[in-house]
Structure formats: C-alpha cells, structure tokens
C-alpha cells in the first residue's frame, strides 16, 4: 500500500461523534452511537468495518454520508472527503452541494436490494432516477450506457426492462452494484451488501465488487459483521465495539496478530471446517449505548480487565506499524 500512502486519504474521519438525542416529557435521553471515531480511507482500497449489531457501524456510515435525520445528530468531529475540501462533513454542506456530489462522487450499495429498487418501476427507470442527472445525454444514449454497464456485472441488458421482483436476490444485488458504480464514483459505501445472499452467490458478488473497484480505482468502505468476508475482501480493517473503534490495521496483519481482546475473540471463536476444537461464545451482552459502561466499554466482558479499564478510556495507539489498538492491556498507561 506504499503507493497509496503518498496521496492524501479520500476520507479522513477525526474524532467523529454522532448521538441520538430525544427529549420526551422533559426527559432527555442521549444515545452515543458513535463516540470519537478516527480513521482514514486511502485511494483505491477497500476499508472494512466489523462489529456486531448495535456497535454503531450503520450510524457511523450514515453520519459520514450526511444522512442525518433527527434524532440522529452529528455532535462533533469531522469526516472530510478529498472531493469536498471546503466542508468538514457532508452533513454540514448545503443541500445543492450534496446533491451534486451524491452518486457522482459518493455512492452506496445498500443491504436490502428489494428496498432500494422501487418495486413499481422498471430497472431502467431506476437507473434514470439515480444517474441520468449526473451523466447527461439523451435518454437513448443513457439507456445504452446503462446496458453496457450492466454487462460489467454480468447481467443481460434485457434486465433493464424487468421489474425488481422478476429478478433473483443475487441479480438484484448486482443491479444495485451497477447502479452505485455507473457514475464511476470515487467513494462507495457498501453496507452489508451480501448478508442476505447465500454463500455461493455471495462469493460471486464479492469478486465483482473487487473487480469493479480496481477498474475504477475507487475506495470502498465495506461494512459487515462477517469476519470471513473481511478476510477475503478488505485491504484494511477497523473493528468497532459499542460506538468506538477498538482496533484497525491492514487486514492480514489483524488476522495474524489481533491485539484487542474483542478482536481476538471475534477471530478465535469462528468455527472452521476441518477443525474440531471447542470454541466458546463471549459471556455477557453488548452494552446499551444509552448507559454505556465507563472507561473502556468492553471491560465488563473482557478477560484481561484491570482496575484502570473501569475508569479510563484507552487511547487509540499505533502499536505496530499501521496497526492501531485501544486497550490498556496492550498499551499500559495510555489514556484518551
């Protein structure tokens, strides 16, 4: 990745905080779904984000993409894109600026393909809705371009005339990939794009995301809780727990030398074919983010917990080259 390191990152997230704030009947409630997350995504790489449900990964990408709707508020920090240098977050830019970059520079591959494609509109109409504004040209030209692009994801141009329900889950997911990539965006956010697919189709779709990403040289922020997918696809990987990033680094490095106890558990608990060793689940449950535990949020479930973990938030420290971890057991005496 040395070539990529010379260039400025496409996305720089610094101390990002996004909270859900509600006040009903005089009771103020604040859920700190994203609490002080910092990382970079370089040009031409797939950055993976792993974490279980309610770890804040979807809130994080919503904030990065500027899809902020009450009660979700961006409270502090920045998420700066290289193609939007004048604003420190998409959510802080005026709507007309956001409309111009959305889909042209920043696009999304969503989880439920059935929810993204309008069930009452043919695929070609969906393509026009999303991308015509950015690509221009006559309607016929645009349709030809869409058909050519569909061939890249190995779909027949006749798919353009179909309704979403006529396609299988794997085909629909490929349509959403084609939709997200037709404008050749610099940054693609993929939120669990293969979770609803079965393993054989999933392998196809992942290979396709990698091929298209390389052809265009874009960056992808890829979110899934499936560590096997991260191992196979991503270049770098960040692990989230309870709204905070606890570890990040190059994917092979993280799998070879996981430092944070939570990462170690995630990797160690995966059963493998051909291996009959007993594997244990983690005791306890993920914390409620309205009342998170003080200090390190993992300490109630952590096998290495010490007294300092219950009071002090550990700092994210670069322990090895390009490998950061937030843990008192790994970096003694480093408070955030």
């Amino acid at each position: 990745m040395s070539g990529a390191a010379e260039q400025a990152p496409v996305l720089q997230v610094r101390d990002l905080q996004a909270h859900f704030r509600t006040h009903y009947f005089g009771v103020n409630r604040e859920v700190r779904a994203v609490d002080g997350v910092s990382f970079d995504v370089n040009r031409n790489e797939i950055y993976g984000l792993a974490g279980e449900s309610s770890s804040g990964k979807t809130t994080l990408i919503k904030t990065i993409a500027g899809l902020l709707k009450p009660p979700l508020e961006m409270v502090g920090g920045s998420a700066r894109f290289s193609f939007l240098p004048d604003w420190d977050a998409v959510g802080r830019a005026p709507p007309e600026v956001v409309r111009a970059i959305r889909w042209r520079h920043l696009s999304y591959i969503m989880q439920g393909s059935m929810n993204v494609l309008n069930p009452l509109r043919r695929i070609k109409h969906s393509f026009r809705d999303f991308a015509w504004r950015h690509l221009g040209g006559s309607k016929a030209e645009f349709d030809l371009r869409a058909a050519a692009h569909l061939e890249r994801v190995k779909l027949d141009p006749s798919v353009l005339a179909a309704y979403p329900h006529e396609l299988s889950g794997g085909m629909r997911q490929r349509v959403t990939i084609a939709l997200a990539t037709i404008c050749k965006p610099e940054f693609i956010i993929a939120d669990e794009p293969t979770t609803a697919l079965d393993v054989v189709v999933q392998k196809d779709v992942l290979g396709m995301i990698r091929t298209i990403q390389q052809e265009m040289g874009s960056s992808v922020l890829f979110i899934t809780h499936d560590m096997g997918v991260h191992a196979a696809l991503t270049d770098r990987l960040g692990i989230m727990y309870a709204g905070r990033l606890v570890e990040d680094g190059e994917t092979p490095e993280i799998f070879a030398r996981p430092l944070h106890p939570y990462t170690r558990h995630l990797i160690g608990s995966l059963p493998r074919i051909g291996d009959t060793e007993q594997r244990e689940g983690l005791e306890g449950t993920p914390p409620n983010l309205a009342t998170p535990p003080p200090g390190c949020r993992f300490h109630p479930r952590c096998p290495l917990a010490m007294s300092v973990c219950t009071t002090t938030v550990p700092a994210m420290i670069e322990t090895l080259s390009g490998h950061r971890v937030a843990c008192h057991a790994v970096n003694p005496g480093m408070a955030a």
């Binding site: 990745m1 390389q214 040289g217 560590m227 191992a231 196979a232 991503t234 270049d235 799998f255």
Partner: peptide, 19 residues
C-alpha cells in the same frame, strides 16, 4: 465458505500499478 483462512481470496488480484 469464507473463513479467516481464505484471507486475500479477492485481494490477490490487487496490483500496485492500479494504486
């Protein structure tokens, strides 16, 4: 089936030239 052991299944084709 993708496991931690299948590391780099799709990364192998990543070339520096593209970077």
């Amino acid at each position: 089936v993708l496991t931690p052991d299948s590391a780099g299944a799709f990364r192998a084709i990543h070339s520096r030239q593209a970077v």
